[in-house]
Simulated assay, not measured.
Amino acid sequence: AVKVFQRTDEQLKSTYSRVFNSFGTIMKTDSQLQQDVCAELKWEPSINATQIGVQVKDGIVTLAGEVNSYSEKVDAEIAAQRVEGVKGLATAINVKVHGKNQRRDADIAHAAEHVLSWSNYVQPDVVKVAVEKGWVTLSGQVRWDFERRGAVAVIRHLKGVVGVIDQITIKDKVSSKLVKDDIEAALKRRAKKEGSDITVDVSGTNVTLTGTVHSWSERDLVNYAAK
């Protein structure tokens, strides 16, 4: 006679906690992803993880809560995105500046212009700053995307900032074909495995990457390689 061993729901959950997708890579359950994201938030010293809630559905992570600075909000997003298995991210984190970190809009604007003038990434007087209720809007035209990203990065760490609106544009100074060829070459150098099935399309200063990767971290690697 053949004996049939019955398992409890918890045993089955443990047994099948990891499954393989069509690419042959291990996928995490939503419960495992939630645990890993929570652990990553706790591991990041710039984040007060007790203020941030984590929910996961079908690999999409939602962060919710209230933090005391815009930089902490961004750090939480970055921490969640680097967890293996995260397919997407939704953010419902509010920035509420308290106490000594509060600043007037005029003071934030002055500080923003000052740090931009000291930045190695941005040419003098190229990026313009406007501030309303703690929201900083950056505008202007730069030559390279690293200048745009550098400007946004230095602003997010200022006290009193609750958000950054990026309206910086990039000058179109080279042919689309040259840009496409350079990006495809960069993908082969920096992300050969992850970028092997990525299609590159260039229109003016807009670059569109199309394809499939296994996680948000691989997506970031491909995006970084193309920049």
Score class of each variant (00 low, 15 high):
K171L: 14
Q141D: 05
V67Y: 05
C38F: 06
T208E: 08
I183L: 04
E66L: 09
K171F: 09
V131P: 12
V131M: 02
V164P: 08
K171Q: 13
F23L: 09
G211V: 02
K193T: 15
G99H: 03
F20G: 00
W144S: 08
Q81N: 11
L158P: 09
E84G: 07
E132W: 00
S17C: 06
A185I: 04
S175Q: 12
V67S: 03
A151G: 15
K128R: 10
A186Y: 06
F5E: 12
V37F: 03
W43C: 01
V200K: 06
A80V: 01
L41A: 02
A64S: 15
N21T: 13
I60Y: 10
A1E: 08
Q102T: 15
Q123K: 15
S217A: 12
G99A: 12
N68Y: 09
N48C: 05
V162Y: 01
I170C: 05
V115L: 02
Q32I: 13
V154K: 07
I168M: 01
Y70D: 05
K173I: 13
Q51V: 00
T91I: 11
V200Q: 04
K96G: 08
Q6R: 08
R143A: 15
G150P: 14
R190M: 08
S217C: 01
D30E: 03
I165P: 01
K100Q: 13
D58H: 03
G24S: 06
V97Q: 04
F146C: 04
G85M: 05
G160H: 10
L33F: 01
Q81D: 07
V142E: 00
A191W: 02
I155N: 05
D197M: 04
D197E: 07
Q51I: 00
T8N: 08
G65V: 07
D182S: 15
E184P: 00
L41N: 01
D172T: 14
L41I: 07
K193E: 11
K42E: 03
R103E: 12
A90T: 12
G160I: 07
T210Y: 01
A49I: 01
R219G: 06
A226Y: 00
Y121F: 12
Q32M: 13
L158F: 09
Q35H: 10
